[in-house]
Design a binder for these strands. Structure first.
Lengths: 331, 331
DNA sequence: GTGAAAGCGCTAACAT
DNA sequence: ATGTTAGCGCTTTCAC
């Protein structure tokens, strides 16, 4: 099957290619009978406009690049779904890029992003630092950052304020006299942990105390679970805070194997809630983070950056809220 | 910052654009001093070749479309990682499309895929049926299908044989006299369940028996768990087979709440293993499916389809194997 | 209302 | 070894 072009359609319909172009772009000025004539030719030939050629002519690709940390799909799934759902509405394509832990091939990613002339880029998580973003904005590419607050030219951000989240939560415990709180490190999500750490510090300070129980997982431990199993034999807390479900489950298993009971001896909360939290026994309390919305809103913001002439048409920063879901691991 | 083109570089380096083109494409024939002259100009101007224009001129986009079922990222994550890792090696971009449950907007997806002139498409799972694929192959687009065996022109497939997997597994139970096996429906993965069902049927038949315990989750139940809680109060089996971890955990919780013990009263196996299986108590046995490899191999096959002149350079079908991981939920 | 022609940025013969 | 030129498939003024 020969590649069929706008020119073939024009010949078939016996009009000029300009007219065909008008038809496929829904121009108003085409007379009804010639429109249908062209439509028929398109149908007959099975013609599909070449988006690449359109992209060249129009100087836009209607595709946006999405950058997520590799292997994060467990936690990014809903974000991507939200993103794609609204991308579909506005007829944008998503090209997916992943950043690799450690080895900073981010330059390569930026390079291919620029070459591919996407209309915008949406970045989840903190793998690309400010300098990287600077390179992109230098090339006039609008950016939306998911998860981190961020102020810069041509950059918008959509996020959940984890510091505030944990501040409010911890504050209640402290006020109740439960001041022995602990936060478990999460090597895969340093940026989130940093926010949580700051929120906790502030909560303690504002109550005239100091937060000290940031529990780092020693490097030699292959998994959090291995370490925690030892840890909870020796230590206890009023409340243990984890970021991800798998860490919460590790705590849960470790604590129970140490002969202690949740929530009676120790309470447990997982910031990033998931369905697995409610499958654990006891069920683990957590915060419903609006992942889908994070994606959907980000894409929506992107479309606004792309279409609105003035910068006042959209918010540079969008904070999304969360819902606390108490279950059986907290009192 | 004005869009800078190959022409600007040519002027800056005082050569023709053909020479610049040769340099950026690593042609051997360019003299060393002019090459460096051009390099400098490229550097100075911050020039990045426009992949869209290249795509138009070369009639290829070096991007391939990936189609996955919406909301499947929990299970698709590793596949995508594998895919992207080898895509990076060959400098291919991935544009991501999701099929929606029920409402068959697959036509739209196919439409945009064709318009975008991707070099190939990789499809995970069975949301696009044979007719859909036919449309794509009509437009000369090479296809790799992940997860389903498939024979057709210009289509390759990479898969795990679930029917064989469960056949072998069930056969051992039957031979041991444990013939009361049950398979739990999974609405989200009808194609996998179908394969499992067939494997079980055959295993029973080959042993002169009939497989009957395909347990469907009634539509009125919001979740499998709700139904199973009732179910296991009334029924028991020698072995219960689920496809996903969350269903296995639902069985585990239901059975335990019914006062029965795993694995003593009832054994449990989850076909698609995950880290959550080993976090459950008792830990759930499962099959390590090579998800990462499914993605990586698929992309590799795609590159072969794209580059090899003859069809003998690659296998039309690639079967990947699995590893059984016995844990505490089976004897 | 429709057509002719220039241009989007690049590649690849073909010349020199 | 380097330059010239004709496309790649489409959009969009500008004429008619």
């Amino acid at each position: 099957m020969k590649r069929i072009t706008i020119y073939d359609v024009a010949k078939e319909a016996d009009v000029s290619l300009a007219t065909v172009s008008r038809v496929i772009n829904g121009s108003e000025v085409v007379r009804e009978d010639t429109r249908s004539k062209v439509q028929e030719a398109i149908e007959k030939l099975g013609y599909k406009p070449n988006a690449i050629a359109q992209g060249l002519a129009l100087q836009k690709t209607t595709t946006i690049a999405l950058v997520v940390p590799e292997a994060s799909f467990y936690y990014t799934g809903q974000i991507i779904n939200g993103l794609i759902d609204v991308a579909k509405i506005y007829n944008y394509n998503i090209v997916l890029h992943t950043t690799t832990e450690g080895i900073s091939k981010t330059n390569d990613i930026i390079e291919t992003i620029i070459k591919s002339r996407v209309d915008g880029v949406i970045i989840f998580n903190d793998k690309l630092d400010k300098d990287d973003l600077k390179v992109l904005t230098n090339y006039q590419v609008p950016i939306v950052v998911i998860g981190n607050q961020m102020i810069a030219d041509n950059i918008c951000s959509v996020y959940v304020d984890y510091a505030k989240l944990i501040y409010d939560y911890a504050d209640k415990y402290i006020k109740k006299g439960k001041t022995n709180l602990a936060l478990i490190e999460d090597r895969k999500n340093p940026a989130m942990i940093k926010q949580l750490n700051e929120g906790l510090k502030k909560a303690f300070e504002d109550n005239g105390l100091t937060f000290t129980n940031y529990i780092e997982i020693p490097k030699e431990y292959r998994s959090s679970y291995m370490f925690l199993k030892d840890y909870f034999k020796m230590f206890s807390h009023d409340l243990v805070i984890t970021y991800r479900d798998s860490q919460a489950m590790a705590v849960l298993n470790s604590v129970q194997e140490a002969g202690k009971s949740i929530p009676d001896d120790l309470e447990l909360v997982c910031v990033l809630d998931s369905k697995y939290n409610s499958m654990a026994r006891p069920q683990i309390s957590g915060f419903k983070i609006p992942d889908y919305d994070l994606g959907a809103v980000s894409m929506r913001v992107m479309t606004k950056m792309l279409h609105e002439e003035n910068e006042d048409g959209y918010n540079r920063e969008t904070e999304l809220s969360y819902i606390y879901t108490p279950r059986k691991s907290t009192i």
